[in-house]
Amino acid sequence: MKRARILPPLALASASLSACAGPLSTLDPAGPSADAVANLWWVMFWASVLLFLLVGGLWALVWLRPGFGRSLAPMRWVVLGGLVMPGVLLTLLVGFALYIGERLLPHALADPPPRVSAHGIMWQWQFSYPDIAGAATTPTLHIPAGAPVDIVVTSGDVVHSFWVPRLAGKIDAIPGHRNVIRIQADRPGTYEGVCAEFCGDGHTTMRFRVEAHAPQDYRQAVLEAAP
């Protein structure tokens, strides 16, 4: 009876999850970094569904079939459910997540990726291109498609956070600090970005657009971009 009440939302959730594309959706990845995280999410999601059913099921059985659990000694319950099960699962999960996290870092590459600077001020982003002589500062972020780009994120006033959900996770822009995040768009196109850290009255509208260009067009596109 209790499970019947739990299952519909779960079914609803998984049905809608597979159909949640959107310009800011982390589940509609358009680059390797966001893709790796989306995979991690699906692994954790299904594992969580199973664990929830296990605990919810045990709870239901305790009430519906009194005495079913007596065959297992009391402390066995605690040791198996409280130590062994989470111990094994968490070790696997932490290892897997660390492996993914390590791969996403902006490691030094033989062919250093281009750098773009993202400077947050209340309440807009300014993108500049130190690698490209003569490039102006733009309100839209231009990147080449199909290759990694390192974004150097800084702030001119309060804490902001640079986030293009379809490409990668976020990194904070903290005044006085300089953070680097590696993003990559697999295909040319337009992607949406937001400021993720609350930064005052204009936080809501501190959005920006990312345009990924074919590599051969990139340089020209940056030079022609409207400031």
């Binding site: 995280v37 999410w41 997540a97 996290g101 976020k170 990194i171 993720a196």
Partner: peptide
């Protein structure tokens, strides 16, 4: 999990 948090944080 760090990579997931960097997406879901905030």
């Amino acid at each position: 999990m760090v990579p997931f948090d960097q997406q879901a944080h905030d």
